[in-house]
Design a protein around this nucleic acid. Structure first.
Lengths: 226, 226
DNA sequence: TTCATAGTTTGGTCCAGACCTAAATGTTTC
DNA sequence: GAAACATTTAGGTCTGGACCAAACTATGAA
């Protein structure tokens, strides 16, 4: 009848409290089992199974069987981006379910966005690298300059390995607390896992907050500074 | 009970075909009356009125009374951004609302989007002018550069008359088939009517398809080329 | 004034789909 | 093997909400 994609089908999937809760839980980037997601959503495993089948059929999540578990994760960064956009709208409209609390500050400072780092810390990093010529021009997805490649390699990120993946190396991603861009894509993901591996930061379980230790934050800033 | 904004409430609003169609119609940035939106959505005015009340209560659209009409428009750019993100996801998943038909090719080439031109031809024009400095910066609505004003006047568009109207001179408008921008606003409308008046193109009745004659299309491209 | 048009409210029908329990299917551990 | 756990399927209930017709309100036109 009309031109254009059928956004209602996708939106309807998101517009169900149980499914929305599952997707928000998956926004941390971690794959979760069907059981964990059913608890997250507050429904029985049977109901959750139905929801997950629907989400998978719509292409919003992908499931992978592993032993007697089945792990689900967001299908791709576009989905995460859409969820973030909805979060932005509903946050702006004051449909918050929690009041701003102590955790909120930490959330604004650093959190995971899908599988990379978001928050003011991540925005600072992006800004610093951008003004220092690490990236070329900046469309939605983009590449590293030669200088950028060297800098990252020196800092322990295996750029050539990342290049082999089909995933874009760098992607700009809007940060909803800062309203500016931070770095996503393969490099963004590598940075978050590096910070976690070095012990500079830890995920707060079952939440998107990433907590940097006092020393860890200093070392992280030193690490990315040029 | 969980942290975070209540995305389900907003998503549920979008997850209803009638409401989704209304929002997509509003993505052009133009304010539309309740009646136009009811037709766009394919429901009776009564039903549409209920939907619009819901959309307004959720803060996705704002309505403004003007005489015996009531004009609705998207509440703010964040809403447009969320809709775009959903379009991206659903387009990638191939959940298109159209079935490919013979008309589809013509439709993709040129059609009317309210009162201005959309489709690949319109996107090309916009792209060409943009890269040649006809416009300044490009927020939602924007102005012509001095150069742009001269170019349009030379080409038979009375810019000073358009300036007098309250309507924005230029407006970028998302093109559904191309997923890029084309030109709306007063100038966009003037271009379409110029093409029709010169006999380069005709509207196919009761459809949005605009058919350029073979010679007309050549002359149109020559007309806008710099 | 009276008529026409735009929009909303009301009342009622009807169906999609969210939910549960119970039972079936798989997988790992003992 | 059997027992424990994870997940899916089957069957059935029940509610939210999408829809329309008709009545009502408000504005503009004749």
């Amino acid at each position: 009848m009309k031109e254009g994609p059928d956004i209602a089908q996708v939106a309807a999937c998101l517009g169900e409290p149980a499914r929305a809760n599952m997707l928000l839980a998956l926004m941390s980037g971690m794959a979760l089992t069907a059981g964990e997601l059913s608890r997250e959503a507050g429904v029985t495993p049977a109901t959750a199974s139905g929801h997950l089948a629907k989400l998978e059929a719509s292409g919003l999540v992908v499931g992978e069987k592993q032993g007697r578990h089945r792990f689900y994760r967001l299908a791709d960064p576009d989905v995460a981006h859409a969820v973030e956009a909805l979060v932005t709208v509903s946050a702006r409209l004051g449909h918050m379910r929690t009041r701003p609390g102590p955790k909120d500050g930490a959330m604004r400072r650093a959190r995971s966005c899908y599988d990379h780092l978001a928050g003011s810390l991540a925005v600072d990093l992006f800004e610093h690298w951008r003004t220092n010529g690490v990236f070329g021009s900046l469309p939605e997805t983009f590449e590293l300059t030669r200088r950028g490649q060297e800098l990252l390699s020196e800092r322990g990120i295996d750029v050539t390995a990342l290049t082999k993946s089909r995933r874009p190396l760098c992607r700009r991603c809007i940060d909803w607390s800062e309203r500016r861009h931070h770095l996503g894509g393969g490099v963004g993901a590598a940075i978050l896992s590096l910070a976690l591996n070095k012990g500079w930061a830890n995920r707060k379980d079952s939440s998107r907050v990433v907590i940097f230790t006092p020393g860890g934050e200093k070392r992280f800033v030193a690490w990315y500074s040029l």
